[in-house]
Write a protein that binds this DNA or RNA. Structure first.
Length: 151
DNA sequence: GCCAACGTTGGC
DNA sequence: GCCAACGTTGGC
């Protein structure tokens, strides 16, 4: 089972929303590297929920991948900010996964603490200027994270 | 294929 | 508001 880190702005879609909905389609990803990471996800993988553009930014929860290889419907919707006129139903460019709420941690683990604890190799999100909204988390890092988040 | 200009993410 | 770190676009 692999671990991932997935960013979302809490004002747009935060852990509270997921807790209420139980599952969500992680749509709107328009970066090929992030898309390719989603494509390599497997059902049962776990993902850390990261609040970006938050005060402070940090990890707040844990999710489970419950469906993979889903077409992102927003690419066909002219009213959506994620509309992609170059994408066709025959050859969709963007896809997504479905995630299920597993838990919300007792406290947010701030980026500042992550920077003090992990190198950029151990946890890519601590790299300055990192813009990737989906990142793989090495297993050893994930285990240390879970310990920190329980405390 | 190169590269300058421009756009986006996201921390601070 | 600023800026770092990219990704994308388009002229050539």
């Amino acid at each position: 089972m692999a671990y991932w880190l997935m960013k979302s702005e809490p004002d747009v879609y935060g852990i509270e929303h997921l807790r209420q909905e139980n599952t969500t389609l992680w749509d709107g990803i328009r970066n090929y590297q992030a898309r390719n990471f989603m494509r390599s996800m497997a059902i049962g993988d776990h993902a850390f929920f990261y609040h970006s553009n938050a005060k402070p930014p940090g990890i707040v929860g844990l999710m489970e991948v419950v469906e993979t290889g889903l077409v992102d419907p927003t690419q066909f919707d002219p009213a959506s900010k994620y509309h992609d006129p170059a994408s066709t139903r025959e050859k969709p460019r963007w896809d997504c996964v479905r995630l299920r709420f597993l838990r919300q941690f007792p406290r947010l683990l701030p980026l500042e603490t992550l920077r003090e604890t992990f190198s950029a190799e151990e946890l890519g999100v601590v790299r300055r200027g990192n813009r990737l909204s989906i990142l793989p988390v090495p297993d050893a890092t994930a285990q240390r994270l879970l310990t920190l988040l329980e405390a």
